[in-house]
């Protein structure tokens, strides 16, 4: 059985766990270094507030171990805040998050809550008509490496990318009933 560690410092981690459990994966929450040291085949970084999660990653001495593991090839899936934490740059400036994904991200890209929206679209490698929920969402300004494949766009903006075994979406597949993106991620393992 595949063992997925879910970063559970803040945000919608329970929703990812429910979806991964539906797909037959085993999940455990990471809130401390000792949680992090448990055996795992992959990591999920949920939606929530990226500043809140990053502050806690630092305070709990998790930032460097997680970053090293991702650079060593641990598959990782970040949604919304997760995409921001993985992004190397923000609006042309290097970020001090995990910075393992070679993209430049734009936070709160669509504006405040009143601008949050739901749509459907195609995701390369996943399929057509994938439901996409954007909550105070970011988008990707630009990719910074030829390794990064754009999987989805919305109105010309990049909303899902893959770089080797790193997957990131600006939207929230864990808030829908559609499991295809999580299945796609599990296929990396």
């Amino acid at each position: 059985m595949k063992r997925i560690a879910i970063l559970a410092l803040q945000g919608a981690f329970a929703e990812h766990a429910a979806m991964l459990n539906r797909l037959g994966a085993e999940t455990h929450y990471v809130r401390s270094l000792s949680d992090w040291l448990m055996p795992k085949d992959a990591l999920v970084i949920p939606g929530g507030e990226s500043t809140s999660q990053l502050t806690l990653l630092r305070a709990l001495d998790l930032l460097q171990p997680v970053r090293t593991a991702i650079l060593d090839g641990l598959p990782v899936f970040g949604t919304c805040a997760g995409l921001i934490l993985l992004a190397r740059d923000e609006d042309g400036t290097p970020r001090d998050g995990l910075a393992t994904l070679d993209v430049d991200v734009h936070r709160n890209a669509y504006g405040r809550q009143i601008a949050s929206f739901h749509t459907i679209g195609a995701v390369d490698g996943v399929g057509q008509d994938v439901p996409m929920t954007f909550i105070r969402a970011p988008y990707v300004n630009a990719v910074r490496s030829a390794d990064v494949h754009v999987l989805a766009t919305h109105e010309g903006r990049i909303t899902a990318v893959r770089q080797n075994r790193q997957l990131a979406t600006a939207f929230h597949p864990e808030l829908t009933d559609d499991t295809r993106i999580h299945e796609y991620f599990l296929s990396f393992l």
């Binding site: 559970a8 929530g48 507030e49 949050s116 909550i135």
Partner: peptide, 16 residues
């Protein structure tokens, strides 16, 4: 749709 999006923002605040 708006009700869902507004409930979902609250979901993103959980654990905070």
């Amino acid at each position: 749709n708006r009700v869902d999006l507004n409930r979902q923002l609250a979901q993103m605040l959980k654990g905070g």
